[in-house]
Design a binder for these strands. Sequence first.
DNA 1: TCAATGACCTGCC
DNA 2: GGGCAGGCCATTG
Length: 108
Amino acid sequence: MPDSTSFFDKVYDIARLIPYGRVTSYGAIAKYLGAAKSARMVGYAMNNSHSKDVPAHRVVNRKGLLTGKHHFEGTNLMQQLLESEGIVVINNQIQDFDKLFWNPSYEL
DNA sequence: TCAATGACCTGCC
DNA sequence: GGGCAGGCCATTG
């Protein structure tokens, strides 16, 4: 199973580059990798991110909604982690998402 | 092996 | 401007 030699590995790399107190979206990562249409893959990669040191809680959908919070241990763990970094999350919705948004294609 | 699903996004009607 | 359908790649049944 230790493939880690494909789209997934790159996704983990980008996710790990996300600065503290910042968030990004699946599409942004996918687009940076040159696969904007493969945004779904990014989310699937996050599914395995639990095996890596990837802060998946900093990765959300285009609307800043914590769609994958259900995949975390607790129900509000993802929100707790984001709030712990100074990010305001209400009802699984990140506030000021446009300000906290971290665009890899722009920052990198 | 084939078919269906999934932490999504973009485009068209 | 809102809603629907298609597409992407990998994993599971």
